[in-house]
Amino acid sequence: MFAHTLVSALTLTANRTFGESMMRFFNLVVTRQADLRIALYEHMLLVLIPVGIAICIAIPLGILATRYRAVEIPAIGLANVGQTIPSLALIALMIPLGFGIGRRPAYIALLIYAILPILRNTFTGITSVDSSLKRAARGMGMTDLQMLWKVELPLSFPVIMAGIRTSTVIIIGTAVLAAYIGGGGLGAFIVTGLGLVRDDLILLGAVPSAILAIIADFVLGRLEEWVTPRGLKV
């Protein structure tokens, strides 16, 4: 079914000029403004909720993984395996796994996907803090928590932020696929557009999500710079 719609979409864009498609797309932005606004809002929720929960889970889990090997092996292992599952497959898997369709399974699938970069970056960020700094910290009498709070976290903060940025940008793109299991968002336009063979509808989903990704990348990049401790900036 995907293959069929893809083929028709391709023939369709090949038959019309890109300029024509854009004109029809701009018309659509005006006429379907209300729908676009709702879809945009839904899309943001599809990103913010999973990424927000992912931050709350992945950072503590990443920290625990640096402390206990019993956490490290399964958590980091899963993170690495999870990353290799294609995103569409993960979303589609929600149905046979018994989560059904709608927003909830979409959030769950996106959450699983969002955790991975943050978890990995938290873990590597902390473990790559120079071992001599850790020895100095312990040698001066810091407890494990003090060392985490005063040394390891400040030094790995930029890396963790980079993980959050990667995760957000990936999820903005992946959330488009949520529409296949009825998750709503900008992806709904694309899915319908592919079904109806209407490139203006496809663009109505694709362009705003691309813009969203670019803005998120920029803003989070700024934030990353801002949280980098002054002593680390060159």
């Binding site: 001599s132 700094l133 100095a136 910290a137 312990r138 040698g139 009498g141 040394v151 002593g231």
Partner: peptide
């Protein structure tokens, strides 16, 4: 206690290891 022992003892480590994010 480890931390008491260490806080009452100066330690200059071979690698210097000043904390880069602190003044």
């Amino acid at each position: 206690r480890n931390v008491d022992l260490r806080r009452n003892m100066g330690y200059v480590i071979q690698e210097i290891a000043l904390f880069p994010h602190m003044t």
